[in-house]
Design a protein around this nucleic acid. Sequence first.
DNA 1: ATGTCTCCTAAGAGGAGA
Length: 260
Amino acid sequence: MKIASWNVNSIKVRLPHVLEWLRLHQPDVLCLQELKCETSAFPWDAVEAAGYHACVAGQKAYNGVALLSKTQGLDPVTGMGGVADIQQRVIAATYGTVRVLSVYCPNGESLTSEKYAYKLRWFDALQQELRRIGQESSRIVVAGDFNIAPEDRDVHDPQAWGGEVLCSEPERAAFRQLIDVGFRDSFRLFEQAPQCYSWWHYRVNAFKRNMGLRIDHLLVSTALVPACRASGIDAQPRALERPSDHAPVWLDLALPNSEA
DNA sequence: ATGTCTCCTAAGAGGAGA
């Protein structure tokens, strides 16, 4: 069972890239973030023609998350239980025995911004949500754009980024608190090449110079760790014309998608 | 290096967000 995650920065603009990536890699589940379109404007027909079902939580202009899948997701839920948020940042559904969440965590803007305080509060809410879901299921994948580089080795220039938003210690502590609920960063379960990143700024030729951060992650609950077979980042789509600023990240689980 | 991309409003560019 292959699960992937990709912040597409507008599904309307990136639809050709997404369809091509589905065709090439045939993931069982693809978690999308930053759709930047209303649910009604989601390209349902094109996704269906590609052989995929979709659970979508969109909104006008910003945010928006989705789950594309070969089999229909069960028990879809939007948002975090009980927490009102007009920003569409979370959608969950069940595939086989695995509960999958697609999350678009707040960016934070800068350490002095009100958006940074919102980001930290939002991660508290996510932690509570994962504890709650963990009581219902032991097999969970949380996939998405976390907007946090967990460690210095996830940053091309740790000195330049030291203490900056996406790398600050309070954000890293929030990430570790998610891990402490009972998850692992699936990327780090396996040997990885150095300087693997999932996001590169559009400016300053950042991708060509590999000036990136690893801020997109697939967290797996501890019960799923033995099933993890491989993980990685596919930087190829970042080299296309009109790319998203993020690359897809993926995880291969030794589970048939049909397993009940 | 206030650089790049995508959205919005609103009828032009400029602001928000990343």
